[in-house]
């Protein structure tokens, strides 16, 4: 589903001492099927932005359009239920929301609420648990007997069981160990392609944004600061530093290399092995010239 933000602002608790402008005049367009990373310093408005995607909040000004759904300031959103069925949100630490007595019921809870038939729920539950790469034996177990990583996968399966068109991921790997992080991101990437989802990833990991996203939106103090392809955006190390963001480590390193050795090795998505070969050639290169 296409996602469009048109001059969207959002103010928390307006006209109160707590009034806080979380988003300011945000506009962008995400074509259906994109994998978009939303990046910004803590408190830049990322979480508020994604809460607009399934109508948890309505813009204070402007319009949000998700597929055929429009959310406008002061207008009641139509078919909110339908929107929430199509936009699956994996919140931060989603395993904190598990509550059912067994994994099967927890995964099936969403579709059950949306009136999906029992047989269909069974089918979707099995498909979802396979999608998150957990054994079906776990379906009978209490979600609270599982490890942290498994609990997170169950929570994600619950979102997938809704068969969403849009998948919104808020820091989905926070708190996992490096291997768990990689596995979860690879899983989302695979699902994104297989199910032709539109994926919106909120992340602090520039490395993940570089590896998985085809489009990056950078937020700063509630405003859109920059957007574009990761490779285009991340070359702007100086500008990003000004809004307290880093560029991926590989680009940082190559920039420092240029300063220290006066040699430019451009980043073009090469693996670390390829990069080492290019670097070795540059370091040894001097000999060839002399």
């Amino acid at each position: 589903m296409d996602i469009t933000f048109q001059d969207v602002s959002y103010i928390y608790q307006p006209n109160s001492p707590f009034e806080f402008r979380a988003l300011e005049d945000i506009s962008f367009h995400i074509p259906s099927g994109s994998f978009v990373a939303v990046i910004g310093h803590t408190g830049s408005g990322k979480s508020t932005l994604i809460q607009h995607l399934n109508g948890l909040v309505r813009p204070t000004n402007g319009e949000v359009i998700v597929g055929s759904h429009s959310m406008k300031a002061g207008e009641k959103t139509k078919d909110l239920k339908d929107l929430r069925e199509k936009v699956g949100v994996v919140f931060q630490y989603p395993e904190h929301q598990l509550f059912e007595e067994n994994v099967e019921k927890d995964i099936g809870f969403g579709p059950l609420n949306f009136g999906v038939k029992e047989e269909e729920i069974k089918r979707r539950t099995r498909e979802a648990i396979q999608a998150v790469q957990l054994p079906e034996e776990l379906l009978d177990r209490s979600p609270f007997d599982l490890s942290g990583g498994q609990m997170r996968r169950v929570a994600i399966a619950g979102v997938l069981a809704m068969s969403p068109d849009v998948l919104v991921l808020d820091e989905p790997t926070a708190g996992l160990d490096p291997r768990g992080q990689r596995e979860i991101m690879e899983m989302f990437h695979r699902l994104h392609k297989e199910k032709r989802l539109t994926t919106v990833l909120v992340t602090h990991s520039m490395e993940d944004a570089l590896r998985y996203a085809d489009h990056v939106i950078i937020l700063n103090h509630g405003k859109k600061f920059m957007e574009g392809q990761p490779k285009e955006v991340f070359v702007n190390e100086k500008e990003l530093r000004e809004v307290q963001l880093d560029v991926p480590e590989v680009i940082q390193f190559l920039n420092k290399l240029e300063q220290r050795l006066g040699k430019k090795v451009p980043y073009h998505g090469q693996t670390i092995t390829q990069l080492a070969k290019e670097l070795a050639a540059v370091v040894k290169g001097r000999e060839a010239h002399e």
């Binding site: 490096p178 092995t273 990069l275 080492a276 670097l279 040894k284």
Partner: peptide
């Protein structure tokens, strides 16, 4: 044992593989 190493560690290992 399932742990990663820093970027610099990995790059240094690859560089030594590439003859540095």
């Amino acid at each position: 044992i399932g742990l990663d190493t820093p970027f610099v560690t990995k790059l240094a290992a690859e560089l030594s593989g590439a003859g540095l």
